[in-house]
């Protein structure tokens, strides 16, 4: 296949589509420019290549085109990357672990198996239910993995850190105070909403959030495999150490 020179109007259109993908709140409703470009991306292979290449140059990767629009994943070193550390200043090590753990738990709760990652259904996350889910997983783990007495003092595991944090510390106003896991889950859900990875689902009650296709694709095609890789390395060093 010989490649003809790139049409400059295509370059402009590709840039426009990526711009829509980066804009929070841009929705490809019927008849909008965004929708037309998205349809073109879905059907016109050449345009798709142009957009993909353009995005690559910006440090982005197109993960998919669900109905809500173009889903982009940033290169971790690129200008569009989001880091956990950017979202909250002055996090200590334990806080970072708890927040990160909650994010993994959200994914595990919503998409426990491979098939769930391909399922376009939107999952709901409830703050209290998620805390129950994490604590349930921790007690399940303890039931199998009784503390190793021979080893003397056992290193504090991620499960210990989470379990040691109280579930709820109420404020005088009946809200959740900093330092409890329910508040931490609330904060993480707030981040997800800010990042367009979730929406508040007030229609179905307070504390209820609805995950978006963006989060599903990011977990499926980017975060999951990378985290698994780090996990494998960590376990390997643990075994050899």
């Amino acid at each position: 296949m010989t490649l003809a020179a790139l049409d400059l109007t295509d370059a402009s259109a590709a840039g426009q589509l990526i711009g829509f993908g980066l804009t929070r709140g841009a929705r490809p409703v019927e008849g909008s420019d965004y929708r037309n470009l998205l349809d073109r991306y879905r059907t016109d292979l050449r345009f798709k290549d142009t957009v993909d290449t353009f995005a690559e140059g910006l440090g982005l990767e197109v993960l998919g085109t669900p109905r809500t629009g173009l889903v982009l994943a940033p290169e971790p070193t690129g200008p569009f990357a989001t880091r956990l550390a950017d979202l909250k200043t002055a996090m200590d090590a334990e806080e970072k672990l708890v927040f990160g753990l909650i994010l993994v738990a959200v994914a595990a709760y919503a998409y426990p198996n491979e098939v769930d990652l391909d399922d376009p259904d939107t999952k709901l996350v409830d703050v209290v239910k998620l805390d129950d889910f994490i604590r349930g997983a921790i007690s399940g783990l303890r039931a199998i993995d009784a503390p190793d007495v021979s080893n003397g003092e056992r290193a504090r595991t991620a499960a210990d850190v989470y379990a040691d944090m109280p579930s709820l510390i109420p404020t005088p106003h009946g809200r959740r105070k900093q330092g409890c896991t329910l508040r931490a889950i609330e904060i993480v859900c707030g981040w997800l909403v800010d990042q367009g990875a979730a929406r508040e689902a007030k229609t179905l009650g307070p504390d209820t959030f609805q995950l978006t296709d963006r989060f599903r694709l990011l977990v499926a095609d980017s975060a999951g495999s990378e985290a698994l890789e780090v996990l494998r390395t960590a376990r390997r060093t643990e075994v050899t150490a």
Partner: peptide, 13 residues
Amino acid sequence: VVETFADRSLGVR
């Protein structure tokens, strides 16, 4: 591990 997961699952900024 969780930081790697978080950095990649939070998407673009």
